[in-house]
Amino acid sequence: MKLEEFDFYLPEELIAQEPIEDRSKSRLLVLNKTSGEIEHRIFEDVIYYLRPGDCLVLNNTKVIPARLIGRRKNTHGKIEMVLLKPVDVDIWEVLVKPGRRAHIGEEIVFGDGQLAAKVIDITDFGGRIVEFFHERPFQEVLHELGEMPTPPYIKKKLQDENRYQTVYAVKPGSAAAPTAGLHFTQELLEKIRQKGVSIAFITLHVGLGTFRPVTVENIQEHKMHAEYYEISHEAADLINSTKQVGGKVIAVGTTSTRTLETVADVNGIIKPGSGWTDIFIYPGYKFKAVDALITNFHLPKSTLIMLVCAFAGKEKVFRAYKEAVNEKYRFFSFGDSMLIM
């Protein structure tokens, strides 16, 4: 399967640069994955497609201020660093820009010296392993010096950093937001509960696996970067009981989808626990746990668009994307949403 098969035309002006004022008033394209029928709604209308006995699965990860701007100790050249995941105490896997300057042994200073780092290794993915040095608690210094790591296609500075968090974000650890969940408000979630829909919270800390570009021509050769997940006994029980009574499991986002499909057995039963997942879902994959999907509109040639095509069929998805472009939907992190069921 070739990478070029997942390319599509997207006018640059459709890339959303900032969130709309009311999260739940974004647009919603509803795609029937069986018939291919498309409807155009507002996101808060998602409640009309949920039924008592269904289960909505949300990723409650929280974005950390993972972007650090520093300088090389010897030359004072600017270095940008994005934290991906902890490896050990004070040791992190990171992305560095410009990477060619970050040799093993390179020392980097942040702020007025409150934080320093030393490159100790280079990863298979082109990242770096660094050791941090600090006198005050690391999280305290990070929140003082770090910035929200919004994607590079967002050129505007985010005025309210909480808008790059879901309203249910509680577990710090992500380098990017699970953006499908940005459309929910607490009021909408409460209406969904009152309708008799269960809400299960799981965790996947979004890292390089989610947003790393595919660079190989044959997509089957792409290797996903592992990301950490947690599923509680309570969440697993909620999802499994939904399956037992014939309800639908609606995953909010590709991160929730990948987590559920990682831990589900052949019958779709979810096992609680924690670990690392590098699952790569592309057309031909047989879903075991997820019945419906809420997701944003994704980058061309990304692993995310491949997952969506695996779920609903490439032809139907690309037809829906073409209609979304024609109807001037807003794309990517701060853009509009799709419900596929």
Rank of each mutant, 00 (worst) to 15 (best):
Y329D: 02
G126V: 06
D54K: 03
H103W: 11
E135R: 14
G70Y: 01
I64K: 10
A320D: 14
A117M: 08
F132C: 09
V96D: 01
Q17H: 00
H103M: 12
K33V: 09
L145E: 04
P300F: 04
H40D: 13
Q244P: 01
R193N: 08
L31A: 03
Q244Y: 02
Y49V: 03
P52R: 03
S274L: 10
G77D: 14
R41I: 09
R136L: 05
T185N: 07
D278Y: 00
H233Y: 05
K85Q: 10
G105P: 03
S24Q: 13
F334I: 02
V266F: 12
A235G: 02
I104G: 02
G146A: 08
E93V: 00
A175T: 13
K171D: 09
R67I: 02
I64S: 09
A251Y: 03
V197L: 15
L58H: 02
F287G: 11
T166Y: 08
G275Y: 05
P151S: 07
F297K: 06
P172N: 07
L204R: 13
I129Y: 04
R71K: 12
H40E: 15
T255K: 07
E327C: 04
L115C: 06
R67Q: 01
V214K: 07
A16H: 01
L95W: 01
D237A: 07
G273L: 14
R100P: 00
I64E: 12
V130Y: 14
V109A: 15
P11C: 01
K156T: 05
C55V: 15
I305L: 11
I104V: 03
D22Y: 02
R101S: 08
L115W: 02
V308H: 00
S26H: 04
F133T: 06
S35L: 13
V30C: 03
P300K: 09
S274V: 06
L14A: 06
Y49Q: 13
L115H: 03
